[in-house]
Nucleic acid binder design. Structure first.
Lengths: 131, 131
DNA sequence: CTTGACACTCCAGTTACTGGAAACCCTATC
DNA sequence: GATAGGGTTTCCAGTAACTGGAGTGTCAAG
């Protein structure tokens, strides 16, 4: 099947699929007219990538996961390690965001938010809030 | 003061300060030797930017906040609107991350993580887990 | 034979920096 | 005066993961 169909069944934009090829994640065959030709197994891998990306894995992690997926002799421990690291990273990001959010919530709460110019949010940013 | 000192007191790397100038956030004077010269007010703005960035505001939001900060006739409502939108965006990101985390946690929990090749994580990514 | 929908490649832009190269400036020491 | 070191300047390239667009080629239908 050509790239349009592969895009439709994998859920990935054609542009993204070409990009994945460019960085060596998938290598479809080429037809006589130079069109890319995706087999079921290619599409399977595209779906795999779409799912892994939607779970927040980086491209390099996806590359490793795909490689493990294709390796019959893999150890599940290797996969688990990647996923566990990813969870840790997510936790770190969430904690960072929540900290920002907590600070912002206090400031927004304190700001009357009308036409007057005085504003605790700007005061905080300017260093008056937490010297 | 020159850029090294401004970096030290603002907490921003000199590279970043030059970048902020390049995109028009700050415009220090120049000395005879072409060195940048930062006044206290410049440094104040650099601190402002550092704080705003640490709260996750984008550069463009920082630009607006800085402009509002310098505008004596601002309405605090404008500031509050930017901050509120930012909180909403943070909430969206956190929700997205938490959803990923929940899925990953289930998968990691289900994976025995030893030398055997069978792995629920890969099965999920491959589409066997949630068809 | 033309039209429209697809496909191809290549280039540029996105965000917010960061690293590095080559050159210039300033101060201190020998 | 020469030199060594540190700081400064500019410019270029690279990061992550695409995305948009230009210009061109291909295919099937009418």
């Amino acid at each position: 099947m050509n790239i349009g169909e592969a895009a439709a069944v994998s859920g990935l934009p054609a542009k993204t699929i070409r990009y994945y090829e460019e960085i060596g994640l998938i290598s479809p065959d080429r037809r006589g007219n130079n069109y890319r030709d995706y087999s079921d197994s290619h599409v399977h891998n595209l779906r795999f990538l779409a799912r892994a990306r939607s779970l927040g894995f980086s491209i390099e992690e996806c590359r490793q996961l795909l490689s493990l997926y294709g390796d019959r002799c893999r150890a599940s421990a290797d996969v688990k390690a990647i996923a566990s690291r990813h969870i840790t990273e997510i936790d770190r990001k969430v904690a960072e965001l929540m900290e920002m959010r907590a600070t912002l919530a206090v400031l927004v709460e304190a700001c009357h938010g009308d036409e007057r110019p005085d504003c605790p949010i700007l005061e905080d940013l300017a260093g008056q809030g937490a010297p």
